Amino acid sequence: MLLLWGALGCWACFTQLTQGADAMAAASDYDRALFDRLPLWYRLDYAIATGTMLLGAVALLLRSRHAVALLTVSLVAVMIQFGWMFAMTDIIAVKGPYVLYFPLLILAFGALALHLAHLARRRGWIV
């Protein structure tokens, strides 16, 4: 499941970074303007967050100790990404609090994946 989640995240990142706001369903003028204003570091952080999630899932499948580090980087990158988005833009005021639901789901998956990696390390499933 984590492998699929990571692959979907990478696909979403790739399409959004290559197609811009048009990659999102029914992008509004606000969405387009917001995407155009995103700093380069934010886009890089998005790629890091999704890429390390996918690599962390692969590392778990391969029983690699690198899973913990990769999934930690992913979760931190996600927190930076959404922390900046919600603290430094007016997205909640414009779109309402429901825009928090999917980011919270993404954070939950990241935390769950990291918890699973720690559990696997403690139980000796990964070395």
Rank of each mutant, 00 (worst) to 15 (best):
P97Q: 12
T15V: 03
W84E: 14
I80V: 14
P39V: 06
R32P: 06
V68G: 01
S64L: 06
T72D: 00
R37H: 14
R65T: 13
P39R: 10
Y101M: 14
P39N: 11
R65C: 02
T50G: 01
T50K: 02
A23N: 07
L38A: 12
C13L: 12
P97V: 13
L55A: 15
G56I: 05
Q16P: 03
F35M: 10
D36C: 02
A69I: 07
L38T: 07
A69R: 07
F86W: 04
R37I: 01
F102M: 15
R65K: 13
G20P: 08
T18K: 12
S28R: 13
A57F: 00
G83V: 01
V68H: 05
A108V: 06
W84G: 04
I91L: 05
P103S: 09
D90R: 14
C13A: 14
R32V: 07
L55M: 15
Q19R: 13
A12Q: 10
L55T: 05
R65H: 12
A57P: 04
M53A: 06
A12D: 13
I80Q: 01
P97T: 15
P97W: 11
D29C: 05
V99Q: 11
L107K: 01
A33Y: 01
M79Y: 05
A27R: 03
T89W: 14
R43V: 03
I92D: 10
A27M: 10
V58C: 08
L17K: 07
L104D: 10
Y46F: 09
V73Q: 02
M88F: 14
R65Q: 02
A12T: 10
M79V: 13
M53W: 02
L55G: 02
A77S: 06
L75S: 11
S64T: 06
P103M: 09
F35R: 07
Y30H: 10
A26N: 15
P103R: 06
A57C: 06
H66P: 00
V99I: 12
L44Y: 15
I48V: 15
L70N: 00
I91V: 12
L100P: 01
S64P: 02
D90G: 09
A21P: 12
Y98C: 03
V76A: 07
S28N: 10
R63E: 13
M24A: 13
A25Y: 05
A59E: 00
V94T: 15
G110E: 02
R63Y: 11
S28L: 10
I91R: 10
A25K: 14
W41H: 03
S64D: 11
M53T: 01
A33P: 09
F82K: 03
A59D: 03
W41N: 11
L44I: 15
F82D: 03
P97Y: 11
A27H: 09
G110T: 01
M85P: 04
R43H: 08
